[in-house]
Design a protein around this nucleic acid. Structure first.
Lengths: 113, 113
DNA sequence: TTGACATATTCCCATATAGGCATATTATGA
DNA sequence: TCATAATATGCCTATATGGGAATATGTCAA
């Protein structure tokens, strides 16, 4: 009855798509970029790029600004923070050094509490 | 002609689903957990939990181990690192302090190069 | 005003689910 | 051995896409 959640429901879903991550990477590097700039750089069909941009806009990951006939897109990177924060919880799984430090901090915290 | 990429294609897609993130969070807190443990804790139907676990297994995010009639699942958190690494690139968007430090480091790096 | 460039939409199709339900599998423990 | 607990699968339906193609919109520049 229910299908997969919409790509426009949140950043996690929007970012699950590889193309959209590429668009985000590009905006991160280049600042403001017009649709055609992405079309050329990514080698995708223009309508497809516009559609992905729409999804990104709907979750607030990008903003647009008109400039002549063109539309300049900009990354709102701060909206990727929820994802970063979530994955940060698992740092101990790959960063043993950090794990040791944290465990020590936690254990001393427990002693005080 | 082509639909959304499979949830089993990579961690990004697997993690796009809220329930699966909840399962991951639970495993992160509790270590090894049997299916029923998650069923009760998350209030989901057992078949649904098994299906989500299968997706997580296919992308390597969890491992299983038999124990009597039960199957104990464990988190392979290190496979969340790609997501963490990707989002890390955008830290400057929310961490201005860090941004300044990095920019300074990069500019001095450029001078040397 | 008008033609051309730059984007956004609309339609259509095949694919990929989440979930709900029923049932098949397994591994026990008495 | 065997009923049973604990999981995994199979089936079916409503949704939600990515893409492709064609077309609608918008904005300028001459």
């Amino acid at each position: 009855m229910m299908a997969r959640s919409a790509t426009t429901s949140d950043a996690f879903n929007a970012v699950a798509e590889r193309r959209r991550r590429e668009i985000i990477d590009m905006l991160s590097r280049s600042g403001e970029v017009p649709v055609n700039g992405m079309v050329e750089a990514l080698g995708l069909a223009q309508p497809l790029v516009s559609k992905h941009l729409r999804v990104l806009r709907e979750v607030g990951l990008v903003s647009v600004r008109g400039s002549g006939r063109r539309r300049l897109y900009r990354l709102n990177g701060e909206n990727l923070k929820p994802i970063h924060d979530w994955t940060k919880r698992f740092e101990r799984f790959w960063d043993d050094q950090l794990a040791r430090i944290k465990e020590q901090a936690e254990s001393s915290g427990r002693k005080k509490a």
